[in-house]
């Protein structure tokens, strides 16, 4: 935790923009550099920088430990579900072309956006959970 007023004010202003940037990297990953892995890391960084300055306890109140572990599981589940849905619609496992019967290219695009979202949610959840785990070990 930091008592420096400049650090506190700057981090407080910066944290929401870090999360916004993570969402941009996530959703713009098809067109520019970026994607689920990077977005997840940046999303976790937003919460970590907040926890470093304002304390882990306050951060855990905003984003509970149960929520980050759930994120880690749900992202992976989303990825696998997209694969099985493609399988159920007559394609191969993870063959997103089957997601849209009329336009396979559109189906591919939808599949890629969904699994990138799964990757991003899992990476953000795991990294935040790991940081919470290390930080909480110290506090008690």
């Amino acid at each position: 935790m930091s008592d420096n007023v400049i650090v506190r004010v700057v981090v407080k202003m910066l944290a929401p923009f870090i999360l916004l940037f993570a969402l941009y990297v996530q959703l713009h990953g098809d067109y520019g550099p970026g994607g689920g892995f990077q977005a997840g890391v940046i999303f976790a960084t937003g919460f970590i920088v907040y926890a470093i300055v304002f304390g882990v306890r306050r951060t855990i109140q905003a984003l509970p430990f149960a929520a980050v572990t759930a994120m880690a599981s749900l992202g992976l589940a989303l990825y696998a579900t997209v694969g099985f849905v493609a399988l159920g619609l007559g394609g191969a496992f993870l063959d997103y072309g089957a997601l849209d019967s009329r336009d396979p290219v559109h189906g591919q695009h939808v599949g890629i956006v969904l699994i990138e979202l799964g990757v991003g949610v899992t990476v953000a959840g795991v990294l935040t959970a790991v940081f919470y785990t290390f930080a909480e070990r110290r506090r008690r």
């Binding site: 990953g29 098809d30 067109y31 994607g35 997103y96 559109h106 695009h109 890629i112 990138e116």
Partner: peptide, 13 residues
Amino acid sequence: TGVPNIVTAVLAS
């Protein structure tokens, strides 16, 4: 895939 970033296309699809 309809995705201009080839790295994303290879990674995800």
